[in-house]
Write a protein that binds this DNA or RNA. Structure first.
Lengths: 147, 147
DNA sequence: TTGTTAATTGGGAATGAATATCATTTTTAC
DNA sequence: GTAAAAATGATATTCATTCCCAATTAACAA
């Protein structure tokens, strides 16, 4: 399976395989992304990267993230009106719950949903490369307190 | 059903029901959205609205769209890095294919997919208000020519 | 190593969509 | 009609993202 094959490889390895030059700055950025299991926006990545290398520029962060996006080694999302978020594709594919109340983003996976997506694309003669599903509403915490 | 109940009502009616003031300018904007069956971005709406009322300002278009969004009488999307798109919710819910090559956005509906989304949200104790699914890849035209 | 060339970078300017401001106009409620 | 509230137009502002260019670093043949 696609994601299975990726597991075990570091983000750095993936970047090299795709032909990206691994500079010092990029290593720092990659490191930041790999360390964090959640969703990071560009500002987050920048702030954390600066802790390791204070000379790093926001432009480099933007460029590197864009590059990794283009090379398909990281996933990016833009939830609603929010800024772009990035996450390492090391983990297998998942979708998101976005809470309209507290803004919390939770991941979930559902195999039958994944299969259905593939079927739907196929039946519409669409060659699927990627997909994303976001479900908006109230997370369990917020739906309790709003009663 | 939710969308079924909406069918037949005009966007203008919906706005009034929700408590929005129906000004001349807003009528023009509503008219533009209702006329177009597809996806409009803010610039599109502005350009078309100006044909009916040349005095209309882009600020008013932004304000009106934002208002209608907040009142849940129109749907908005931001596909990938693209700008926001709007569409009338008169039509029943649908998802989108987004072609990475030509940028074309196609709608599709799949009932079993819809049901599955509901089930998944329920089983994760998430109170679903809305959802969106986008499938990225190559449309049938582009996947042919790229061979 | 060293030199040469290409790629990367830092910092600040530029871009562009979206929002805020405020004086003026239109709506609404009476 | 009139007064208060809401909406509008024009423009300024914000803010994430990208561009620009000189300086730095990487790649690699000799």
């Amino acid at each position: 399976m696609k994601n299975g094959a990726r597991k075990g490889k570091s983000l750095a390895q993936l970047c090299v395989e795709k032909g990206m030059t691994l500079t010092k700055k990029r290593k720092v950025i990659i490191n930041v992304i790999e360390k964090d299991p959640g969703h990071l926006n560009t500002e987050d990545v920048y702030n954390r990267a600066k802790m390791e290398d204070s000379s790093i520029s926001i432009a480099t962060v933007y460029r590197s993230l864009k590059l990794m996006r283009d090379y398909n080694v990281i996933d990016h999302h833009s939830f609603g009106q929010e800024h772009q978020h990035f996450e390492s594709p090391m983990k297998s594919h998942h979708d998101h719950f976005v809470c309209n109340e507290c803004g919390k983003i939770t991941e979930f996976t559902d195999n039958s949903l994944e299969k259905l997506k593939i079927n739907v694309a196929r039946s519409h003669d669409f060659e699927m490369h990627s997909h994303r599903l976001e479900i908006y509403g109230l997370c369990s915490d917020c739906s309790k307190t709003s009663q």
